[in-house]
Design a protein around this nucleic acid. Sequence first.
DNA 1: CGTCGAGCTTGACATGTATCGAATCCGCGT
DNA 2: ACGCGGATTCGATACATGTCAAGCTCGACG
Lengths: 124, 124
Amino acid sequence: MSKPAASNLLDSAVPCCPPMAQQRVGAAAATELAVAFKALGDPVRLQLMSMIASAPGGEICVCDLTPSFEVSGSTISHHLKTLREAGLVDAERRASWVYYRPRPALMRQLATLLTPAGDDLTPS
Amino acid sequence: MSKPAASNLLDSAVPCCPPMAQQRVGAAAATELAVAFKALGDPVRLQLMSMIASAPGGEICVCDLTPSFEVSGSTISHHLKTLREAGLVDAERRASWVYYRPRPALMRQLATLLTPAGDDLTPS
DNA sequence: CGTCGAGCTTGACATGTATCGAATCCGCGT
DNA sequence: ACGCGGATTCGATACATGTCAAGCTCGACG
């Protein structure tokens, strides 16, 4: 559990991703970033991601996620795995329960990437 | 061409989408937003989107997009249709050529949605 | 130990998607 | 009118994905 997450975007020293409105995304970067966007490209996963990202205390138990959906527990687990492998969330087992927390680094990269031309982004 | 784009997020008066780190995304909103993320969840489409978003002059001809990829022209056209129907780009035919331009409104919504907790977003 | 509950994994299936070639459409020149 | 080149659409096919039921793993607690 909590694999290193295939993407090397997370630990890459390269600034990597200015807004796509300012610079084209190369083929290699596109392949990696598309994994993250694809992970968000499902209604269930998007809701899961939002529930994890907005969790008070910074983390949330799977047992608090599952009851919010119509789909089966195994399906939720499968979606969570997708989010994990995309590098968007991190999981940790404590006692009988598994807790998920967001990984803001990638979220911020995606947000920056989508910033339209002329928009300001988190001015220091 | 240039269909109304199924999403009602574009012309909706509702503020709609605070950062997901601040508020859970509802099932209905998730279904619509997931369409946009899914559209970006393919390497070719992500590059296409970045080429359109970064186009000098705010628009770019399909004939300038197609040669950058290995895939066939019909495949590019299909991907562009996906981006159009997701509300991310707009197309216009002029003479023999079709020009694509970005739709910053949705881009900004997605960027805002992904803004992590504690981050500042384009302060007015 | 044994078993119980929470979550993950596996196997299977139906649906969706990416891709291509061929056909079609649409302006433009000749 | 005719053909040409750019772009989209159509039909077909191989592959990926979402979903579930069933089985498995890991701690906890008697």
